[in-house]
């Protein structure tokens, strides 16, 4: 008993410091932000303004972009990681994984500007299309929702692929054979076996990228149209443009609540809930 007690004490001593530090780093800035948001004088006018129709559009647009891009990334990552984990010859697997996740090691802003060069009116895509005679006039690809979407997928797909790959590699291929043997078509195999077995990976990938896309600043700034304003732009404007810290903080909190609400909706699916209980 004595040894067990002193063991617990030591555990606390070892783990306590870092845990307190982690909590402080995570919670303290949020607490400060919250205090700022209800100031000056414990009012709710910042929040009232943040949920006014003017900002509601930008908030829902941001959440929508977050969901849509996450879905597109998952739709691409599923077949890619399945192929990589179960079809690709083992000796090319690492090379393939590195190639797919290469963008992770470049600066975020640089990655966005690479697409400016590719999608611009005089960019490589338009020059190819016009040069081969497929189009008479270059297309307006840049500064549209299309270019923003491409930029987002390009930047966040590596995270989704890496997370999904871990799950996909753990997927027992013989389960697929068993399902086929019992009469399942490819679609049923995917629905009944692949998705449930890789759900933890998909959930983890969603956790990593969804909120970051919805709250992204650089990509819509560089590739997006000025007409489609995302929430980060408004927060930055409030902080830097007119130094309204309280409103910026309130807007951030509303956004955080919306992101969390998105997760709650996701957790409403029984299958997702069962998966979460396993964690």
């Amino acid at each position: 008993m004595a040894t067990a007690d002193s063991g617990t004490g030591r555990d606390w001593a070892v783990a306590g410091g870092p845990t307190v530090l982690a909590l402080a780093l995570g919670v303290f800035p949020l607490a400060v932000l919250f205090v700022e948001s209800i100031g000056p004088g414990l009012g709710t006018e910042n929040y009232a303004r943040a949920v006014s129709p003017l900002y509601r559009g930008a908030l829902s647009y941001s959440i929508g972009v977050g969901v849509a891009v996450t879905v597109v990334c998952l739709a691409i990552a599923y077949p890619v990681t399945f192929w990589l984990a179960h079809r690709c010859p083992a000796r090319y697997r690492l090379a393939g994984l590195v190639a797919l996740t290469l963008p992770l090691w470049l600066n975020y802003v640089v990655l966005n500007y690479a697409w400016v060069w590719i999608l611009a009116r005089g960019g490589i895509v338009n020059r190819l299309l016009v040069g081969t005679g497929l189009l008479a006039e270059p297309l307006d690809l840049l500064y549209t929702q299309v270019s923003t979407g491409i930029g987002f997928v390009y930047i966040y797909l590596p995270y989704v692929i890496l997370t999904m790959y871990v799950s996909m590699e753990r997927l027992d291929y013989r389960l697929l054979e068993a399902a086929r043997d019992l009469g399942a078509t490819n679609w049923r195999v995917f629905r009944d076996i692949v998705v449930p077995q890789t759900l933890p990976g998909a959930a983890a990938a969603t956790l990593v990228v969804y909120a970051r896309i919805a709250g992204a600043y650089a990509t819509p700034e560089i590739l997006g149209s000025p007409g489609n304003v995302m929430i980060a732009r408004l927060v930055v404007d409030a902080f830097q443009g007119y130094a309204n810290y309280g409103f910026a903080a309130a807007l951030s909190f509303v956004f955080l609540c919306l992101v969390l609400a998105g997760f709650v909706v996701g957790a409403a699916f029984p299958r997702v809930r069962r998966e979460l209980r396993g964690w």
């Binding site: 013989r174 054979e177 068993a178 086929r180 043997d181 019992l182 009469g183 399942a184 078509t185």
Partner: peptide
């Protein structure tokens, strides 16, 4: 293919 055959496997 396996799914169209009247065989079943115990793995």
């Amino acid at each position: 293919p396996a799914r169209q055959r009247a065989t079943n496997m115990v793995f």
